[in-house]
Design a protein around this nucleic acid. Structure first.
Lengths: 205, 205
DNA sequence: CATATTGCCTAACATTTGTTAGACAAATAT
DNA sequence: ATATTTGTCTAACAAATGTTAGGCAATATG
């Protein structure tokens, strides 16, 4: 009763991973309990010994990822000082989380819409906290005079959309490492597309 | 037989719009034919006098939007000369299309996954053409020495993800005009977040 | 006026959905 | 060895799904 709890937990983890993969591939609604079961070489009814309902699967995945993203940004805002350093670190953490578990991240990014109303509200609150973590960094950058005069909300949404897009095209076999991807995005976000005509380090007009 | 065709077409257009709204709100799979019918104060069976199937609705919306996006980028690449001008115009067109019909755009952006396999392939081909239109602009910008040395594919995906994110937060009542939004995004994409220490116009090191 | 067409209706269909009940075998605990 | 727990199974359910068949009233056409 205590010795086999890990096994049960393990089985539950397998269900969550299989479900995440299918939710990502076909969407939450289109992926049926029978699909999940078949992928595990099991009958649909057997799933219910490990989870309460299909909605519970979605909730666990979404909130688990939300907490991971959230604790990462809190950590960054606690540890680092410079706004640029913070932003680069926050982006790196985000890319890490997305690439480390693309399936669950995809569910977190897209399938939360299917959460039942009550969970949906708390989920959106968490996501909002995460966005605020980024907004704080951008604001600090503006105050520190490192960033230009941008609309913080606008900048944050642009940054997050760029970072989240990774999930659509990143493949494990790709040539770029996670760190390289994060650096590329950070450079792009910080430096933009236009050619720099001067290295801004230490330059005073 | 000829005089009331417009009416039929009109009714079909209404179905497409209603469907788009519901597809956006709940996702293609979750929005049922009965939902669409109810929203039109009609019975589900009546829909089939105007459309062949639920999948056909999705196909029409997706391909119609794809063609609009595509013809816009082709036009830009034909008319304008300067790469920055081209990019700003392409972004403006994109923002216009998205804000002009948010529901259909949302379906184009997210619900195409549910297309049946055959349509899916041709749709992805069109989307690829659109991305290539942007890639061409970025490449030109690099050749013209207006843009820095960026990975074109990378830049394009970052740009498109930023622009597409509009669909998540743009509301008609908002303060920003479509032109302002497009300018903000263009500035962000071109200039990045970091403070400009020098106006690059005409500066030679 | 007679006729054809249009747009919608009711009724029904086969299938798929999430979920429950109850049984049975293997593993574990007493 | 006996009893209990665990993981799975089969069978079945009620509800919802996309879709079809056939009918009926209003409108447009000749």
């Amino acid at each position: 009763m205590l010795g086999n709890m890990p096994d049960t937990q393990n089985r539950k983890a397998q269900i969550l991973q299989t479900a995440a993969t299918l939710f990502r591939e076909r969407g939450y609604q289109a992926a049926s309990m029978r699909d999940i079961a078949t992928a595990m070489h099991i009958e649909a009814a057997s799933l219910y010994h490990h989870i309460k309902s299909k909605e519970e699967i979605l909730e666990i995945i979404c909130f688990d990822m939300a907490e991971q993203f959230l604790s990462a940004i809190v950590e960054v805002n606690d540890i680092y000082f410079n706004a640029e350093e913070k932003l680069r670190m926050a982006i790196l953490n985000h890319v890490r989380l997305i690439t480390q578990n693309q399936e669950r991240s995809a569910v977190f990014l897209h399938e939360w819409r299917s959460l039942p109303e009550v969970s949906l509200n708390s989920f959106l609150a968490l996501r909002n906290q995460y966005e605020n973590g980024f907004k704080q960094i951008v604001k600090e950058g503006i105050e520190e005079d490192i960033f230009g005069q941008v609309e913080p909300k606008f900048a944050v949404l642009s940054i997050l959309s760029s970072v989240n897009w990774i999930n659509e095209w990143y493949k494990l076999e790709g040539k770029m490492s996670v760190e390289e991807i994060a650096k590329n995005i950070s450079d792009f976000v910080l430096g933009g597309l236009r050619k720099k005509l001067i290295t801004d380090l230490g330059y005073k007009p």
